[in-house]
Amino acid sequence: MSFIPDLSVILTFAIAAFVLAITPGPDMALQLSRSINYGRTHGFATAAGAMVGIAVHTTLVALGISVLIVAAPTAFWVLKIAGALYLLWLAYQAIFHGGGLKISEKAQRIPTLKESFLTGVGINLLNPKVLLFFMTFLPQFVDRHDASAPGKLFFLGAEFILVSIPLAVAMVFAAERLTKVLTANKWVQRALNWTFASVFTAFAVTILFAEGRK
């Protein structure tokens, strides 16, 4: 079972995954929009599509990172530093550019469940910020000297999906109320943005100090 990370890593990543999963973005906006406009079934279909997209990102990143670990350890180190800087950029974005959601209006033609599912996949796969985040965030939880690093990356990707599923289900059920709170209450938005920024900054500082000691 060498592909299973230490318990401390699992718990730390679970907290990070939880915060990331509730951070407003295109995936959340789409799921809320489909749930409100076409019903919960479409919301669940869209959420399932997003999970498939995350699985694809995880696979691509795990395979790519495993190549770096073996062939280019220096590039892997640079990627970890880039991850810390990217987290700081996300913190800046959360504070100074906000995290409000844009919920699309109901279309004239009701989409099929397959269309909602594929739209969820597409929104996730075509969002460069998702790929960039997985590329720079997942490596922070593995050691380049660990031969089981690729397996641990897959494990963490699966953990991210497992953490995201109950949150997505709860979000679909509470879509209408959640949308009103996030779009109408500026104080709640501000509090969430500062919370997200604090978590991103904490992880970035931890990464930078860890790298500085090597």
Results as ranks from 00 to 15, higher is better:
residue 135 M to P: 02
residue 143 D to N: 08
residue 13 F to R: 03
residue 87 L to F: 12
residue 110 I to M: 15
residue 123 I to R: 09
residue 50 A to R: 03
residue 163 V to T: 08
residue 55 A to R: 12
residue 94 A to T: 00
residue 49 G to V: 09
residue 120 G to N: 06
residue 75 A to D: 14
residue 91 A to E: 01
residue 7 L to H: 01
residue 35 S to K: 00
residue 139 P to S: 13
residue 134 F to S: 03
residue 123 I to C: 12
residue 168 A to P: 00
residue 187 W to F: 10
residue 76 F to H: 13
residue 101 L to Q: 00
residue 55 A to C: 13
residue 22 I to R: 02
residue 59 T to I: 15
residue 133 F to W: 13
residue 204 A to F: 05
residue 189 Q to N: 07
residue 197 A to F: 01
residue 20 L to T: 05
residue 14 A to P: 03
residue 128 P to G: 05
residue 112 T to G: 14
residue 140 Q to H: 06
residue 54 I to S: 02
residue 183 T to Y: 00
residue 169 V to Y: 02
residue 62 A to H: 09
residue 94 A to V: 00
residue 11 L to M: 13
residue 24 P to V: 00
residue 198 S to L: 15
residue 48 A to Y: 02
residue 146 D to C: 07
residue 155 F to Q: 05
residue 61 V to M: 09
residue 50 A to S: 15
residue 14 A to C: 12
residue 103 I to E: 04
residue 111 P to I: 05
residue 105 E to N: 13
residue 213 R to W: 15
residue 139 P to A: 10
residue 169 V to D: 03
residue 181 V to L: 14
residue 207 I to K: 01
residue 93 Q to I: 00
residue 166 P to I: 05
residue 173 F to Q: 12
residue 185 N to Q: 08
residue 98 G to I: 00
residue 26 P to W: 07
residue 61 V to Q: 08
residue 46 T to R: 10
residue 8 S to I: 03
residue 87 L to C: 09
residue 55 A to K: 06
residue 45 A to I: 06
residue 1 M to W: 04
residue 30 L to W: 01
residue 190 R to H: 04
